[in-house]
Amino acid sequence: MQERAFPLIFADRVTATAEFYERLGFTRQRQNPPEGEPTYIALRRGQAELAVVASAWPETQYGAPAGTGPRFEMFVLVDDLDTTLRRLAEDSVPLLRAPVDMPWGERIAYVTDPDGNPVAVASATHS
């Protein structure tokens, strides 16, 4: 048995949300359906995995609607935070909180994905 676990991100805009994570270094592994507008997109970045699924998923799978506020908070490490933030700003990604140097050695900023969920983007402040 292969041991793995990964989050499902419930999104109203599945393609746009997957493209957001592709800008952060994730690559698309597969999607369902294979052609047309996807309701499921699997992404990978190194050993990290996540899936972006249509917000109707919880209702159809187990009878509970997806929440209306933030549905998760993601934390993504990047090589260069300032360069990443500039690229995201060029793509009109909203900045929730400007970069702050944390005492444990990371520089962290918050942006939002296309569905308004908070995403912490961080890099090390030392090598």
Rank of each mutant, 00 (worst) to 15 (best):
M1T: 13
Q2T: 15
E3S: 15
F6T: 00
F6M: 02
F6W: 12
I9N: 05
I9V: 06
I9L: 11
F10W: 07
F10H: 02
D12C: 01
T15V: 12
A16W: 07
T17P: 07
A18L: 08
E19M: 14
E19R: 13
E19L: 15
L24V: 10
G25Q: 03
F26W: 02
F26S: 00
T27I: 06
T27Y: 00
Q29H: 07
Q29D: 03
Q29A: 00
Q31C: 07
P34Y: 12
P34H: 13
E35I: 06
G36M: 11
E37K: 06
E37P: 13
P38A: 05
T39Q: 12
T39L: 09
I41W: 03
L43G: 01
R44C: 05
R44S: 08
R45K: 14
G46D: 10
Q47N: 12
Q47R: 05
A48G: 00
A48C: 09
E49H: 09
L50W: 00
L50D: 03
L50M: 05
V52L: 09
S55C: 05
S55I: 03
A56D: 09
W57E: 06
T60Y: 15
T60R: 15
T60P: 01
Y62P: 01
G63Q: 11
A64P: 06
A66R: 05
G67K: 10
G69V: 07
G69H: 12
P70S: 12
P70I: 01
R71F: 05
R71K: 06
F72V: 04
F72G: 05
E73P: 08
F75Q: 02
F75A: 12
F75T: 08
F75N: 11
V76Y: 08
V76Q: 00
L77P: 13
V78P: 01
V78Y: 13
D79L: 06
D80F: 04
L81G: 07
D82Q: 10
D82V: 05
T84N: 11
L85S: 08
L85Y: 11
L85Q: 10
L85D: 11
R86K: 09
R86Y: 14
R87H: 14
A89C: 08
A89T: 15
A89Y: 07
E90W: 13
E90Q: 15
D91I: 03
D91P: 04
L96G: 09
L96N: 00
R97M: 13
A98Q: 14
A98P: 09
P99L: 01
P99R: 01
V100F: 09
V100Y: 06
D101G: 00
P103L: 04
P103G: 02
W104S: 08
W104R: 03
W104Q: 05
G105E: 01
G105S: 03
E106I: 00
E106Y: 08
E106Q: 15
R107Q: 13
R107P: 12
I108A: 06
Y110I: 02
V111I: 13
V111F: 10
D113W: 12
D113E: 15
P114A: 07
P114W: 09
D115P: 14
D115E: 08
G116V: 09
G116C: 10
N117S: 04
N117T: 01
V119H: 05
V119T: 08
V119E: 01
A120P: 07
A120G: 11
A122K: 09
A124P: 00
H126V: 03
S127N: 09
S127G: 11
